[in-house]
Design a protein around this nucleic acid. Sequence first.
DNA 1: TAGATTGTTAATCGATTAACAATC
DNA 2: TAGATTGTTAATCGATTAACAATC
Lengths: 207, 207
Amino acid sequence: MSPADRVPDVVIGRIPLYLRTLSQFQAQGIRITSSKELAAVLGTSADQIRKDLSHFGGFGKQGTGYHISYLVGQLKRILHADREWEVALVGAGSLGSALLNCKEINRRGFAIVAAFDRDPTRIGSQAGGVTIQDGRHIEDEIGLRNIKLAILAVPGPAAQQVADTLVASGIRGILNYSGLALRVPEEVMVQDMDPAAHLQRMTYYLG
Amino acid sequence: MSPADRVPDVVIGRIPLYLRTLSQFQAQGIRITSSKELAAVLGTSADQIRKDLSHFGGFGKQGTGYHISYLVGQLKRILHADREWEVALVGAGSLGSALLNCKEINRRGFAIVAAFDRDPTRIGSQAGGVTIQDGRHIEDEIGLRNIKLAILAVPGPAAQQVADTLVASGIRGILNYSGLALRVPEEVMVQDMDPAAHLQRMTYYLG
DNA sequence: TAGATTGTTAATCGATTAACAATC
DNA sequence: TAGATTGTTAATCGATTAACAATC
């Protein structure tokens, strides 16, 4: 398929997982792989992997498979992961701080460059190389720096209000750790990181 | 549709989100809602909500809508969220500790009743009402208590080895915060909570 | 060359959307 | 009753799976 047609979102959701596993292969010193091998590790099918990749072009060689370093480069390009993305964090409690100090997020191309909280005892303190700012400065700071991604790590009730502020600031994607459903305009993306919801998805299958 | 046929997993994934929003309605004092109203808040369609619910039976009244307290009760029953699930946590670093102290997880029916780490400075300390145990006791403790769910919050390289231990202990579902792809047997479920992967899913759509 | 594996086309399967009769 | 909304059936749409020619 040609690279120009619209790629289903479900496919977009799988590309980061392919990239993640390919990077693990790379770290293990593996240089070449096949859709079959990748599928075995990921628990999907080789057919699906080849079909997914074909939305963007041909990256392999018949009879051989894929050069991992090349494919990793291409997938990064596709996901726009070939540059560093600035991210704002709202909520510098224990969860927010853990994310601030998470090296893995950084290694994968994201830099948390601004952090906010409304608790005066936290404002002004340092964590993960940034200074926690007063939540009142969210709109100024995000607007000024033109930040497009935010991590929402405030607990419960305040989440919607903060989300509104983030949207007003120009944020286009929210990683939502609040455990609440957020109402946002259609053009703003939300990825829910809700432990209870994900656990419930599994308890359905357990007696 | 009759309650007995196989329900698609994509539907199961949405039920916790319906439940979550209905609970929010409840907290706001709203007692009755409709598929239309719910869809507006969730950003989906009324058709889809009704179709999803119909897999399990009929919970509403024509012309009226749904009694929220009744529907909440039914969805909890369907997800087996009408009882408390014991959860094991492996990795009591900053992220693991944040989860241990997360009240929201508890309110939604999950109790982290055992926590493990391999760092001697953490072993024996208290957090969120449990004592951090030596990781060597994972298999004994989980087997003994018959725990079926685990949260994996160890960083990078150790994750696969811990996952193997969890599987051997009888764990059936893993909430995976490690940021690595896990290889598990088919009968074990994994939910990936990988911030970088979820952010990349959004950066695809941003220039 | 022979074997392996890709990228793509065709066939199947499944999910979403639309429509509507039933009924509160 | 009239208006509203459900649960379900039918129609459409889209994704997955299967198959295979191309070719390394």
